[in-house]
Design a protein around this nucleic acid. Structure first.
Length: 490
RNA sequence: GGGUCAGUAGCUCAGCAGGUAGAGCAUGGGACUCUUAAUCCCAGGGUCGCGGGUUCGAUUCCCGCCUGACCCA
């Protein structure tokens, strides 16, 4: 049987070791990069060679074009690709070394000068070269690259090598997160870290991941939200806090859901949800300008320009209008059940609030494209939010929707401990809730009893925000290593 | 949970109304000093996702399973 590519490459590795050039023991410090070289030598004319300045550059070999007496190849470093050239006339030994022992995928350190080829490409004239790591597997095809989504995700490193636009997404993701961090820090927010392992999962309605602490002999849950801890900090006297971190929800995987996802939650004392509407508009606008140069959200090819103030739509009003529900019947659970039966899936336990939210999500939310604040949430679906003064069955809350996706969720925080206790008691009575959690965070009520200033809080889904600003159509495109089942090896 | 589609060489893909598989790139050998999907000649490379069934014979047809994508609830 013929040798596999792996065996061929392994042999080359052994040969390098035999020659006293073991790749994994080499040291090399580049003093420039591809982007810098290209910028610096832009002035060179075709055929011109700047022989005075010598540079050290390193990267991964991507493609090789062998001419016998000379060889061209491209290397990729973290900044860009750049072509390199070895010729017999310059260094015959080096040329032989390269042709015998180097392959695409190898990581090399190169010393050389810079010239522009007759065809016009800035190129490194290689004087010396070290193999810093041997790539023992062939790289994916140079023209079509790596396409299969499954392989791209399972071997994300190959995806990143072969598909520059993938790397761009994650660089943009980094920019987005650091912008938000700076935006809030400038406004006096303090970044904090709160428990991921929580004895009582809280702050959202979702199925938690459960784990166990051996020494403490106790159940712990991976947080579904940091909310109640951050509010404890407001009680403790931090007026503005935020946390960027991973949350975990033991639920389905889809193009918009990953079991672990990144959220930012921020809390601001002496404010209400209207202040957060302003803050959110400013944040999204400035962020989009910063990463994209203009105020746009994208989904695939579709791009929508937006500008503040964002439109607001009321769940209550939309349901009245679209479902033809008389305004005075909007809180009539039995009426709604009868009227909307068949249009949405109604649970036995659902009250009017849950029903109108379900209707809204199914018939209105999907059609929202430009950033839009959805307001007028019923109290039963918002157990941590403050009631509206003019209608205590609704709360001071908004969700920001774009392209049918929920991006942010904010409200004036409920700071009345008696009402909070009542709402927890109501919640735990609901069967669906009991299926999710064993108990409520009663200790939080005790914290509230010590007095929490009027506060507004907001959570923003970072993954979805990155999707909107990069045009990614699946959350998997903005999470480096999305949750996947292992391949079945049998 | 239901439906549709996909899994064939390292990668990108063909193919087979059932007779144990092809191309390009990549790899090995040869030619070639300005190419960039280099070119030209030659060669090697496959448990056709896994398991079962039908059949003289299955990568192809049927059933189950695994993994993934999309749609629906």
């Amino acid at each position: 049987m013929a040798e596999s590519e792996f065996e061929v490459r392994l042999k080359k590795l052994r040969e390098l070791e035999r020659l006293g050039l073991p790749p994994y023991k080499q040291k090399f410090k580049p003093n420039t990069n591809a982007k810098e070289i290209k910028e610096r030598f832009q002035h060179l004319k075709p055929g011109e060679h700047e022989e005075k300045d010598s540079f050290k550059i390193s990267g991964r070999i991507l493609t090789i074009r062998d001419f016998g007496g000379s060889v061209f190849f491209h290397i990729l470093d973290s900044t860009d690709k750049i072509q390199c050239f070895i010729e017999k006339r310059g260094n015959e030994q080096l040329l032989e070394f390269f042709k015998k022992l180097l392959d695409t995928g190898d990581i090399v350190g190169i010393s050389g000068t810079v010239f522009r080829t007759k065809k016009g490409e800035i190129t490194i004239y290689v004087k010396d070269m070290k193999v810093l790591a041997k790539c023992l597997h062939p790289l994916p095809e140079k023209w079509h690259g790596l396409k299969e989504i499954e392989t791209r995700l399972r071997m994300r490193y190959l995806d990143l090598i072969m598909n520059p636009e993938v790397k761009e997404i994650f660089i943009k993701r980094h920019k987005i997160i650091s912008f938000i961090r700076e935006f809030l820090t400038e406004r006096g927010f303090v970044e904090v870290e709160t428990p991921i392992l929580q004895p009582v999962p809280s702050g959202a309605v979702a199925k938690p991941f459960k784990t166990y602490h051996n020494e403490l002999e106790m159940n712990l849950f991976l947080r579904i939200a940091p909310e109640l801890y951050l509010k404890r900090l407001i009680i403790g006297g931090f007026d503005k806090v935020f946390e960027i971190g991973r949350n975990f929800r033991n639920e389905g995987v889809s193009s918009h859901h990953n079991p672990e996802f990144t959220m930012i939650e921020l809390y601001q004392a002496y404010s209400d949800y209207n202040d957060l509407i302003e803050l959110t508009e400013k944040l999204i606008t400035e962020l989009s300008l910063y990463v994209n140069g203009k105020c746009i959200v994208k989904q695939g090819e579709e791009e929508i320009e937006f500008s503040p103030p964002f439109p607001k739509i009321s769940i209550k009003e939309e349901v009245i209008k679209r479902a033809g529900i008389p305004a005075e019947k909007i809180k009539d659970t039995e009426f709604l059940k009868e009227k909307l039966k068949g249009k949405i899936e109604i649970d036995e336990d659902d009250d009017w609030g849950e029903i109108i939210v379900k209707y809204f999500e199914k018939y209105v939310a999907d059609n929202i494209k430009e950033p839009t604040f959805v307001i007028d949430f019923p109290v039963s679906t918002s157990p941590l939010a403050k009631r509206k003064e003019d209608d205590p069955d609704f709360v001071e809350r908004f969700e920001l929707y774009t392209f049918g996706m929920e991006i942010a969720n904010a409200f004036s925080e409920l700071n009345d401990p008696e009402d909070q206790r009542k709402r927890f008691e109501e919640q735990i009575k609901i069967r669906r809730m009991r299926e999710l959690v064993e108990d409520m965070d009663w200790d939080f009520v005790k914290a509230l009893e010590h007095g929490m200033p009027p506060t507004a809080g907001e959570g923003i889904g970072i993954d979805r925000l990155v999707m909107l600003l990069t045009g990614a159509q699946s959350i998997k495109e903005v999470i480096l290593f999305p949750t996947m089942k292992p391949e079945d090896k049998t």
